[in-house]
Design a protein around this nucleic acid. Structure first.
Length: 317
DNA sequence: AACATGCCCAACCGCTATAAT
DNA sequence: TATTATAGCGGTTGGGCATGT
């Protein structure tokens, strides 16, 4: 590029600005305009580089800067624009008068990004994440959907994402059930891929019908829902992991807990490498499995339990 | 009360685009 | 056309503060 960074010059102050420095900068710009940022520090009596002065002015001292919390409308604008523009903070900032790109970037990184991840969305694509384990927090969050909705005044964008989340989660959940069933079938009797495929045909039909099934009557249907291709395991042992992008590195499948007669069947995620689960009692979320079927008393694995709301369960049980 | 941890955000760094020479 | 200067952009950092243990 043929030039060195302006701040390489020695002796220039860095770090937080003092009120006195702010005043000098504001006074100078109000009288003379900023002109050449490189020349400004000397003219204004500041021991800073021009770049530092420019950033201080544009990000903090400019009179038209709006400070304080982002409104729900601003939040929605950022979400909408980010889904279109990506990390083009300056472009997004042009649609939010008084907000700087830096402020929007910070708000995104500290709030909105986490919010999307927590809901099971890829913050870059704004689409539901398709790998099952990455979607676990999302599924768990769905269990608390009512609470989420009650406590958060979701805007249209969020509601649309939420609707897609529900739809996608159901599809993934169904597929996991199908895979589980296939795995069981493969382990018990006939285990050739073709015979399993025959067994799965009705489920595939159901799977396709799911695409048209409205999940939230009040929410618009998602524009597109990614439905992964159904994996047909050739045998119980050969079943592919649903995801390896998590802390659970083992292959996984769905099992059902068999609790008291009155308790609903609750799906559990189980590492395939562990002994078969036959007598798992329903536990609280995050509880370590404590039944005798979990192994030989060694280190207990963490068994995440999906506490899905009742309509969700009954719809696919 | 003391320490650890996590969050927030101003500021910095390194890079690219563009204008000027 | 090549080089240099300047402005702007996006990613990252680090210090202050709040909260938890």
């Amino acid at each position: 590029m043929g030039r060195s960074p302006c701040c390489d010059e020695n002796g220039l102050k860095k770090g937080p600005w003092t009120p006195e420095e702010d005043q000098k900068l504001v006074d100078y710009i109000q009288k003379h305009g900023h002109g050449s940022w490189r020349a400004l520090p000397k003219l204004a009596g500041l021991n800073r580089c021009g770049k530092s002065c420019r950033l201080r002015w544009t990000n903090y001292l400019r009179p038209d800067i709006k400070r304080g919390k982002f409104s729900p409308e601003e939040e929605q604008t950022i979400l909408n624009l980010h889904s279109i523009l990506g990390n083009k903070w300056s472009a997004i900032a042009t649609h939010l008068p008084g907000r700087t790109d830096n402020e929007i970037k910070n708000f995104w990184n500290t709030h909105l990004k986490k919010k999307l991840i927590q809901m099971g969305f890829d913050p870059m694509t704004h689409r539901p994440r398709t790998d099952f384990f990455a979607t676990l927090p999302h599924l768990i969050a769905l269990a608390n959907l009512k609470e989420l909705v009650d406590n958060n005044p979701w805007d249209d964008h969020s509601m649309r994402l939420q609707a897609e989340a529900v739809q996608n989660a159901k599809l993934q959940y169904l597929q996991c059930l199908i895979q589980s069933a296939a795995a069981m079938a493969g382990n018990s009797t006939t285990n050739s891929p073709s015979s399993i495929a025959a067994e799965l045909e009705p489920m595939n039909l159901l799977n396709s019908q799911m695409m048209a099934m409205p999940s939230m009557p009040s929410a618009p249907a998602p524009a597109a829902v990614h439905l992964p291709e159904l994996q047909i395991p050739s045998s119980f042992e050969q079943q592919q992991p649903l995801s390896n992008e998590t802390n659970h590195q083992e292959s996984s499948f769905i099992v059902f807990s068999q609790g008291e007669n009155s308790t609903p069947r609750t799906p559990l995620i189980s590492p395939l490498s562990l002994p078969p689960l036959t007598d798992i009692s329903i536990s609280n979320p995050g509880d370590a499995c404590s039944t005798s079927s979990c192994g030989d008393g060694g280190a207990m694995p963490f068994w995440p339990e999906l506490l899905l709301d009742e309509p969700f369960l009954t719809e696919f049980a």
